[in-house]
Amino acid sequence: MTTLVVGASGATGRLLVRELCDRGEYVRVIVRSPHRLPEALINHDRLTVICASILELRDDEIAQYVGGCDAVAFCLGHNMTLKGIFGHPRKLVTDATRRVCNAIKANASDKLDQSDRLDKPTKFVLMNTAGNSNRDRQEPISFRQQCVIWLLRVLLPPHLDNEQAADYLRTKIGQNDGAIAWVAVRPDNLINEDQVTPYEVYASPTRSAIFDAGLTSRINVAHFMADLITREEIWNEWRGQMPVIYNAV
């Protein structure tokens, strides 16, 4: 199995790449700065590094890099600097998600034209946030939290970007697309840990992401995303959903 990881140089992306390689998977990564990857990963014989900015690639280049991949994992995010938060591109995750999905569909269409047969859909695993609601489930949100989320949408472009990226998968790809199947993983307050620890996964938040946030270690997020990619029973359980992951208390 081959997985394309976008955002592989980030704090969670690096962990996901290592987890997949350790499981014997082949991994391609698109990174602007390969020096941000650990040396042990760069030299891994199952890793292919593509030096590029995802939004600066041509459509045919994205299709080429997606081609032959069984899964795509997005750990892409905005840099937590003034330029990263308020500068362009403000729709980094949404636009990259849309373009990669279009590339997957283009490849699937070409394959059908050649053989009239399409294997199982490409898995698309998006790292999102517990602060984003799954509007397919009509998750209850307190009035106070609704007010804060509205302010975040207005004042912090990355939050709106995360919402719109997940909404693209929900509404544009949906549940029955022949080329793409998806899961949007929603961690809560992210922390760093050295080892995978017990964690819990729910279909909807069990606590307020604003007023009673839980903790989720990045390494646990990477482990769960790798499970979605490599373990069919986990994938089948969460396909087309937005599971929330917390460290076990």
Score class of each variant (00 low, 15 high):
residue 1 M to N: 12
residue 3 T to F: 08
residue 6 V to S: 14
residue 15 L to S: 01
residue 19 E to M: 03
residue 20 L to V: 01
residue 21 C to S: 07
residue 27 V to S: 13
residue 30 I to L: 14
residue 32 R to E: 04
residue 34 P to A: 02
residue 35 H to C: 01
residue 38 P to A: 02
residue 41 L to M: 11
residue 51 C to Q: 15
residue 52 A to H: 15
residue 56 E to W: 03
residue 59 D to N: 11
residue 60 D to G: 05
residue 64 Q to C: 13
residue 68 G to R: 15
residue 76 L to D: 07
residue 76 L to G: 10
residue 76 L to V: 12
residue 81 T to F: 03
residue 82 L to I: 14
residue 83 K to A: 14
residue 84 G to E: 06
residue 87 G to N: 09
residue 89 P to T: 07
residue 89 P to Q: 12
residue 91 K to Y: 14
residue 91 K to G: 12
residue 91 K to T: 15
residue 92 L to R: 10
residue 93 V to A: 11
residue 95 D to S: 10
residue 96 A to N: 03
residue 100 V to N: 00
residue 101 C to V: 15
residue 101 C to T: 12
residue 103 A to I: 00
residue 106 A to V: 00
residue 107 N to V: 00
residue 108 A to Q: 00
residue 110 D to T: 13
residue 110 D to Q: 13
residue 112 L to R: 13
residue 113 D to N: 14
residue 114 Q to P: 09
residue 121 P to C: 07
residue 123 K to W: 02
residue 126 L to T: 06
residue 128 N to H: 09
residue 129 T to E: 02
residue 131 G to T: 10
residue 133 S to R: 03
residue 137 R to S: 02
residue 143 F to Y: 05
residue 147 C to I: 11
residue 147 C to A: 13
residue 148 V to L: 11
residue 149 I to E: 06
residue 150 W to I: 04
residue 150 W to H: 07
residue 150 W to L: 08
residue 151 L to T: 05
residue 158 P to K: 09
residue 167 D to L: 10
residue 168 Y to T: 04
residue 170 R to T: 05
residue 178 G to C: 09
residue 183 V to G: 01
residue 184 A to Q: 03
residue 189 N to W: 07
residue 191 I to S: 11
residue 192 N to Y: 13
residue 194 D to F: 06
residue 195 Q to N: 14
residue 196 V to N: 09
residue 202 Y to W: 09
residue 204 S to P: 02
residue 205 P to V: 04
residue 206 T to L: 10
residue 207 R to V: 00
residue 208 S to A: 08
residue 209 A to H: 06
residue 210 I to L: 12
residue 214 G to A: 08
residue 218 R to G: 15
residue 219 I to S: 13
residue 223 H to K: 15
residue 229 I to K: 00
residue 230 T to M: 00
residue 230 T to W: 05
residue 231 R to G: 02
residue 231 R to H: 11
residue 233 E to F: 01
residue 239 R to V: 09
residue 243 P to R: 12
residue 243 P to T: 10
residue 244 V to R: 10
residue 247 N to H: 08
residue 247 N to F: 07
residue 248 A to Q: 09
residue 249 V to Y: 02
